[in-house]
Write a protein that binds this DNA or RNA. Sequence first.
DNA 1: CCTACGATCTGCT
DNA 2: GCAGATCGTAGGG
Length: 188
Amino acid sequence: MTTILPRSFYQRDDVLAVSRELLGMVLCSKVDGVVTKGRIVETEAYRGPEDRACHAYNDRRTERTEVMFWDGGVAYVYLCYGIHSLFNVVTHCEGVPHAVLVRAIEPIEGVETMRKRRGREPLAGGPGTLTQALGITTAHNGVALDGDLIWIEEGQPVEKVTTGPRIGVDYAGEWAEMPWRFRVSTSC
DNA sequence: CCTACGATCTGCT
DNA sequence: GCAGATCGTAGGG
C-alpha cells in the first residue's frame, strides 16, 4: 500500500521544510505507458520573490515563470542550457513563487527503461539526467503532482541529511550562500 | 527584432 | 579540470 503525497503537502508555507522532507520520497512518472520510479536523494529550495537565485526573483512573472505562481502541487519544468529539462515542485499558495528543484534520484522501478532512455551512466544522478531517465520534458510543465503523469509517493524515512549552498547560482550574491541544498547523507 | 546567457552534461586533456 | 554543445527566455533597442 503506497501513499501519494496530497496537494496539502506542497501547499505549506515553508519551502525549506518541503525541500528537506522530499528526501526519501519516491518520484514517479508514467510516460509512453511505462512507470518509472526513483528515490529522491538531493533537492534545492528556491524562494522567490526575495531569493535572487530564483527565476521568479522580485516577482518576475513571465510565460516561463508563470507556473511558479500557481497553487502548490504542480510541476515546474524548464529548459536549461538549451539541452536539459529540469524538474521542480511548486510549493506554497497561489501568488507566491516558491519551488523545490529535484537534483538527484536513485532508480527503483523501470530501471531498464531508464537505461534505454539514458544510454549511459549515471542513470539519474543529476538534475538533467533524472528527467531524461523518467521521460520528463518541458511538455510536463504545469501538470498536477497528484495526477497519473507525475506523482510522488511516501518512502522510507531518511536517516541523516546534509545541507550546503546551492549549485550553479554564483550570480546570486549573498543568496548563493544560503544552505538551501539538501542531500541524503551517505556516511554512517 | 536581436543578442546574451543559463538551477548542466559530456568528452577530452 | 575545462571548454563546447545548444536553444528558449528575457530584456533591451
